[in-house]
Every structure is written in structure tokens, then in C-alpha cells.
Design a protein around this nucleic acid. Structure first.
Length: 313
DNA sequence: CAAATTTGACCTTG
DNA sequence: CAAGGTCAAATTTG
């Protein structure tokens, strides 16, 4: 009933965010065009201004997410729309982008617009494929533990970081629910961080030899936002053909960090979201599989890949 | 009682 | 050596 109002409110907020982002982009542009002849002081000032601008945009984006999350919580019938990613938000309202490029004097084509904007929104953290060393360790060294731990070298390839907003109400300390089941295997205090970092691996690691892991940590200055870092892709696809999307989860990606490597499957969320954007129009029929967060459906569609055999690991 | 979490020790990496 | 990541025994939870 007040859906359109909420939508409008969100759009207004989005416009503000866009406005700020474009201001930042403009600053970047200016800086870029006169990079050579700038004094260090001027550079510093520019960088400060740019940083401040994007931080501001990010803060406001969080507000948008909070609004969206509250919609989601109150109105679980439309979580699919509410939980779409920032990229999708832009695609929902492509007019916004063009409008802003016109208004703020963008010089690129609208296609370039999206690229630039998304690049700005993404914090890119490179981590190329490092040297893969032997996975086996000669356990002879040192301490008297008789069980030589074999430990995989850090980095099995890709790594993706996602910022997710926690629900304000209720269980804000629950780790955000993506559509996979995780098992906690560690927790650490991190230097300079107020909150501890939790380490999870896929519950089905044993069954499917699934290497997926993730780390969850609250931001120092913003307990309502988690930074979730995924490593390794799921080889277990227990959600199977009946996609069990949990878009109602209090987890809406704010920004993603993608490495240069090819995309990894981080659950049905993104796929489903995409499908809803470009696939069949969002009729009620699609909503059958939606279930409340933290409450997976009792589907019995478990299947295993034939090659995995039965024995555990 | 099995599966999940907690937690301190242990291991790797920079 | 310090910081971060993982293991696994002990403990908790369902």
C-alpha cells in the first residue's frame, strides 16, 4: 500500500547518492586532467576532498539499504525487489544515470557511465594467483604435537569481499545469511578492529570436499555493516534445481570486490537476482521458493556430483 | 548422541 | 616476531 511511497523515498535517496558520487567523479576527472602540474599540497587537498565525497556517498547508501531492509522485514512478499544489488539498482533506473551525467557534465557515453560508476563503487583489491606450493607439509618441525597438520596455503585463487548491512532490529549480531550453510571454525581478534573476525567453512566440506570459506567481520565504526570475504567457490550445490533464494535475508550487498579472475559462483543469490531482472517478469509465481531468512526450506533436492563418490574426503 | 560452536594452541606468512 | 588463519579438544546445542 505504501509501497510506492517507499519506492519513491528510496529513489530520492538514491538520487542523492548519485549526486554525491558524480561530484566525486568530477573531482577525480579534474585531478586526472591536471595531474602533472599539481603541487603535492594541491594533490593532497584533492585526494582529501575525493575521499570525503565518496565516504559521504557510502554513508548515504547505507541509509538506502536500511530503508530497503526495513521494507524487506515488513514486507516479505517483495524481497526480490528489495534485495537486489546496487548494480541492479542502477539498471532499474537507468534514466537516473543518464540524467546525472547530463547534469554533472559527464563526457562519456552512457555505457561508459556505468562502467566508471561501478568501478568507483567497487573497491578493487588485487590478489593474483600466488605461487601454489605443495599442499603437503613435512610435519617434523618443532613442537611435540604428534599430528602433523597439513594446512593449505593461503589463497586457492579468488577472493571476493562483500559489505552487507545487518538488520537494525533484533539479531544484528547474526552473521548475514547467504544461501549456504556455514560452519564456524575459528574466531580471531584483529589488530585495529573493535570486533572479532569469524571464520567459516562450508558445512559440506566433508561430504563434497567443498573448499568454500568465508570471513565475517563488523566494521569498526559501523556495527551494522559486516564485511564478508568469500574464498573459494562452492562445489556443493545443495540448493539444486529448486532455487531457494533467501533474498529476505538482512544482507544486501553494498559493494563488491572482484578479482580479475573469472567470476565464481557465490550462491544462487546473484543468479536469481539476475534471472528476475532479465528473465520472466516478477509475477507472483516466482515467489514460491522464497523463504524467511535463516530458515531454509525442507526441500529434499539434495544431490551429489557422481564423481565425488561416497566416502568422506 | 551427533553436529555445531568455542577457544587456545599451533602454523604460515610477511 | 607479530598478525592472521586453521586445527582440534572441550563444550554447548538440538
Amino acid at each position: 500500500m505504501c509501497y510506492s511511497y517507499q519506492k519513491h523515498k528510496r529513489k530520492v535517496q538514491m538520487e542523492e547518492v548519485m549526486s554525491i558520487i558524480f561530484r566525486g567523479l568530477k573531482l577525480v576527472d579534474e585531478l586526472k586532467s591536471s595531474l602533472q602540474e599539481k603541487s603535492p599540497e594541491a594533490l593532497s587537498t584533492y585526494l582529501d576532498e575525493i575521499t570525503k565525497t565518496f565516504c559521504d556517498a557510502k554513508e548515504r547508501l547505507k541509509i538506502v539499504l536500511v530503508i530497503r531492509n526495513s521494507e524487506t522485514a515488513m514486507n516479505q512478499l517483495k524481497p526480490a525487489i528489495a534485495a537486489c544489488s546496487d548494480q541492479m539498482l542502477m539498471q532499474i533506473e537507468p534514466g537516473l544515470m543518464q540524467e546525472y551525467w547530463l547534469r554533472y557534465g559527464g563526457s562519456t557515453s552512457s555505457q561508459g557511465t556505468e562502467a566508471v560508476t561501478q568501478r568507483q563503487l567497487m573497491a578493487v583489491k588485487g590478489d593474483g594467483g600466488r605461487n601454489l606450493m605443495a599442499t603437503e607439509r613435512s610435519g617434523g618441525s618443532g613442537s611435540g604435537s604428534s599430528t602433523p597438520r597439513q594446512r593449505r596455503r593461503k589463497n586457492e585463487g579468488e577472493e571476493q569481499t562483500v559489505l552487507v548491512a545487518a538488520l537494525r532490529s533484533g539479531n544484528t549480531d547474526l552473521p548475514p545469511d547467504d544461501n549456504h550453510t556455514w560452519r564456524k571454525y575459528g574466531q580471531k581478534e584483529i589488530l585495529g578492529s573493535t570486533y572479532t573476525r569469524a571464520y567459516y567453512r562450508c558445512t559440506h566440506q566433508k561430504l563434497y570436499n567443498c573448499p568454500a570459506k568465508k570471513q565475517v567481520q563488523r566494521l569498526n565504526d559501523d556495527p551494522f555493516t559486516f564485511r564478508v570475504t568469500y574464498r573459494g567457490s562452492h562445489t556443493c550445490h545443495i540448493y539444486s534445481t529448486a532455487p531457494t533464494i533467501s533474498t529476505a535475508a538482512p544482507t544486501a550487498p553494498i559493494a563488491t570486490t572482484a578479482t580479475t579472475s573469472h567470476p565464481v559462483d557465490y550462491g544462487p543469490f546473484f543468479d536469481m537476482a539476475e534471472a528476475m531482472m532479465f528473465g520472466s517478469s516478477g509475477s507472483g509465481a516466482n515467489m514460491d521458493f522464497i523463504f524467511p531468512c535463516n530458515d531454509p526450506p525442507p526441500h529434499n533436492h539434495f544431490y551429489r556430483r557422481p564423481e565425488d563418490g561416497d566416502g568422506d574426503k
